[in-house]
Simulated assay, not measured.
Amino acid sequence: MNNKAVLSTDSKEGQMSADIAKADLRSGKEGVTLQTAPTLYVDGGGIQFAWRRLGPKNGIPLVLLQHFSGNIDAWDPPVVNALADERPVIVFDNAGVGRSTGQTPDSVEAMARDAITFMTSLGLHQVDLLGFSLGGCVAQQIASVRGDLVRKLILVGTAPQGGEQHLMAVLQAAFADTNAPDPRLPLFFTSSANSQSAGLAFLQRARERTEDRDVESGSAVNGSQAKALISWCAVVDPAHTILRSIDHPTLVVSGSTDTMLPVDNAYTMYKAMKNAQLILYPDSGHGVMFQYPEIFVRNALSFLNA
């Protein structure tokens, strides 16, 4: 593997700290982007997690939790890079995804446990979380069971437990669209000319990294993740137990016409959570932050820095 750096928690604590410092120097702010940052590895709970680090060495890290079927290189580079201009940003593959070892769980609860293992294996004591789609479900679960680990939450294009989802129907429609150059175009963007143009630009940006690219998800990952998301939304909980247990400052973000996890989910989260703000973007679908990367980053940083 190119640019491979290994960080193992099997080493002594002092050596682990030294290795993290070395990783920080290699992945610091100057000149390092999502497209160029080395892929690092850390062992935790019997899993070797693949991850990258961008941004300054000091500050509360912003940990990104990825969408269904996505890996590290499925993030939009200008979003990640601009966030890293002001704070440490960590992107990673959860268990079984991309270059991380282990088996992909089929429940949000297990995915949250693995993500917590990853963060604690890096020695992180407090983080901000940005969870997109399935990653937003995982972020809610983490904040509910390990509130001490989380400072603030950004939940993008996601759903609460018991929320509305149309995953399989939307996936089937997207893959049946023979006119689309990539299924992400109908999955993430609306049919308007402006949204489609933004989608094509996103697809081009997402292919910019050509060396040491992450491994695409296969049927094993997709099947487990689909079951996890569908099961999460199938739980009937009119009391919104998880949402009401989260008192962290939270920014809820949604596209106006998200067909996969509809905008009503965002309203539900905003109303049920104790300390939430809500932003809706016009003429946008599931990939709202990829359609409006500059505006999204401004909103996200304003929230995180407040």
Results as ranks from 00 to 15, higher is better:
residue 103 Q to K: 14
residue 117 T to F: 08
residue 120 T to D: 06
residue 120 T to N: 12
residue 110 A to I: 10
residue 102 G to N: 04
residue 121 S to P: 14
residue 120 T to H: 12
residue 103 Q to F: 00
residue 133 S to C: 14
residue 115 A to H: 05
residue 112 A to S: 07
residue 112 A to G: 07
residue 133 S to M: 07
residue 124 L to W: 11
residue 129 L to C: 11
residue 127 V to T: 08
residue 110 A to V: 12
residue 106 D to Q: 11
residue 118 F to A: 08
residue 116 I to F: 06
residue 122 L to W: 07
residue 127 V to G: 02
residue 122 L to N: 00
residue 126 Q to P: 02
residue 134 L to C: 08
residue 108 V to Q: 04
residue 115 A to S: 15
residue 107 S to A: 09
residue 120 T to C: 00
residue 103 Q to D: 08
residue 101 T to M: 01
residue 114 D to G: 11
residue 105 P to H: 08
residue 123 G to K: 05
residue 117 T to G: 07
residue 133 S to V: 02
residue 104 T to H: 06
residue 112 A to Q: 03
residue 130 L to N: 13
residue 118 F to K: 05
residue 104 T to D: 07
residue 116 I to S: 05
residue 102 G to K: 01
residue 112 A to N: 05
residue 124 L to F: 13
residue 122 L to I: 02
residue 128 D to V: 13
residue 131 G to Y: 08
residue 119 M to E: 04
residue 119 M to W: 03
residue 111 M to H: 07
residue 120 T to G: 03
residue 120 T to M: 11
residue 117 T to D: 10
residue 108 V to H: 03
residue 104 T to V: 15
residue 126 Q to V: 15
residue 127 V to N: 03
residue 104 T to F: 01
residue 134 L to E: 10
residue 108 V to P: 01
residue 126 Q to L: 15
residue 113 R to L: 08
residue 112 A to W: 10
residue 108 V to K: 02
residue 102 G to Q: 00
residue 119 M to A: 13
residue 117 T to N: 02
residue 122 L to S: 03
residue 101 T to F: 00
residue 126 Q to H: 12
residue 106 D to G: 11
residue 133 S to F: 06
residue 123 G to D: 02
residue 111 M to N: 06
residue 120 T to F: 04
residue 114 D to S: 15
residue 109 E to D: 12
residue 110 A to N: 06
residue 105 P to I: 09
residue 132 F to D: 04
residue 131 G to L: 06
residue 129 L to F: 09
residue 113 R to C: 00
residue 131 G to D: 10
residue 101 T to A: 01
residue 106 D to T: 12
residue 113 R to N: 10
residue 111 M to C: 02
residue 107 S to W: 07
residue 111 M to S: 01
residue 114 D to H: 15
residue 114 D to P: 01
residue 128 D to G: 15
residue 117 T to V: 14
residue 120 T to E: 15
residue 122 L to Q: 04
residue 125 H to S: 12
residue 113 R to Y: 02
residue 119 M to I: 13
residue 110 A to F: 01
residue 125 H to N: 14
residue 129 L to S: 06
residue 117 T to Y: 07
residue 101 T to N: 00
residue 106 D to L: 05
residue 134 L to I: 06
residue 101 T to P: 00
residue 114 D to F: 12
residue 110 A to Y: 01
residue 121 S to E: 12
residue 126 Q to G: 09
residue 118 F to L: 09
residue 117 T to E: 10
residue 131 G to R: 03
residue 111 M to D: 00
residue 103 Q to G: 03
residue 119 M to K: 05
residue 129 L to R: 08
residue 112 A to H: 03
residue 105 P to E: 13
residue 124 L to P: 00
residue 134 L to T: 09
residue 127 V to H: 00
residue 131 G to N: 14
residue 110 A to T: 11
residue 131 G to Q: 09
residue 111 M to I: 00
residue 103 Q to L: 03
residue 109 E to F: 14
residue 134 L to W: 05
